[in-house]
Amino acid sequence: MHSVGLSTRQGWRYQVPILAKRFKVLTFDFRGLGESERGSEPLSVATFVKDLSALLPMLGISQTVLMGISLGGFVAQAFAVAYPEVVSALILVSTASKIFSGASARRAERNEHIRRYGMRAVAGRQLESHFLPSFAAEKPTIMEWYKAHYLANDPANYIEIMNDLGEFDSTDLLAEISCPTLVVAGNSDVTSVAGNRPLDSAVALHQLIKQSELAVIEGAHHYPQIDQVDAFNTRVLGFLSRTKANPHQSGS
């Protein structure tokens, strides 16, 4: 499950071909993002959990591994708490049990800029905060690809989701998660989701979820599945092998 800024399942472009060699892989766009219509429900983690709870039975999936990044990680946590019998394992990437309170003013300022001037008004700042300068310089094509998806966000939908994430707090619920969990974070992630400092949120998740292990990806920023592909894929595949995920039932 994808993030808000990279508003599409295509954010897993470097993982799906590798995972599909061993697993049944499911990727989809959240409502109001990517290619999915908005519908009439509020754009919130609660709605996305509800959508996933309807989607999986429709596809005949009774149990699955959930992998989510940023927004997708929030949804994965909430889903695992609500439907523990469905989730055989979790992979939580660049996400948090809650966004630290100091980010609220920055979020409000960004949302106001988007409301007044559209996504383009904050696109430059988004790229700077989500990728290391060295990676951006070496991979201009990926930067253009990411920027195109970021600009494709509907401003109203983006603001609604970001405001909901600002209210999200699973801290008191994560002790209920008992399935094997891999928490993945880049040691250079300085986004608000990462915490006051890089790895703050990842360490907190690791401490709150009993059956968890922490994978720190060196040199990675907010999207380790993009800027450190090999290291990310190695950690994920190793985790799935250790948890003995069923190739015929697991999705991501």
Score class of each variant (00 low, 15 high):
M1F: 11
H2C: 12
L6P: 05
L6G: 05
G11M: 15
Y14T: 03
V16W: 12
P17E: 13
L19C: 05
L19Y: 08
R22W: 08
F28P: 00
R31C: 13
L33E: 06
L33D: 01
S36A: 15
E37M: 12
R38K: 15
S40H: 14
E41G: 06
P42T: 13
A46V: 12
D51V: 12
P57T: 02
S62A: 05
L66N: 04
M67W: 09
L71S: 11
V75R: 11
A76F: 03
Q77N: 02
F79S: 01
Y83E: 12
E85T: 08
V86P: 01
L92C: 05
L92Y: 08
A96D: 11
A103T: 10
R107N: 10
A108S: 04
I114E: 03
M119I: 10
R120N: 04
A121D: 07
A123E: 12
G124H: 02
M143N: 09
M143F: 05
W145T: 11
Y146K: 08
A148Y: 04
A148H: 13
A148F: 06
Y150Q: 09
A152D: 06
A152F: 05
P155H: 03
P155C: 00
N157Y: 04
Y158W: 11
L165H: 04
E167S: 10
F168A: 13
S170R: 04
L174A: 03
E176G: 00
S178C: 00
C179M: 13
A185Y: 09
S188K: 15
S188F: 12
T191D: 06
A194Q: 04
G195L: 06
N196F: 05
R197Q: 13
D200W: 02
D200M: 02
V203K: 08
A204R: 14
Q207Y: 01
K210I: 03
E213F: 04
A215W: 00
E218S: 14
A220E: 07
A220S: 12
D227T: 05
D227V: 09
Q228N: 13
Q228D: 06
F232W: 13
N233S: 12
R235M: 12
R235V: 14
G238H: 10
G238M: 10
F239Q: 06
L240M: 15
R242M: 11
R242Y: 08
K244Q: 14
A245E: 08
N246E: 12
S250T: 15
S250Y: 05
S252I: 13
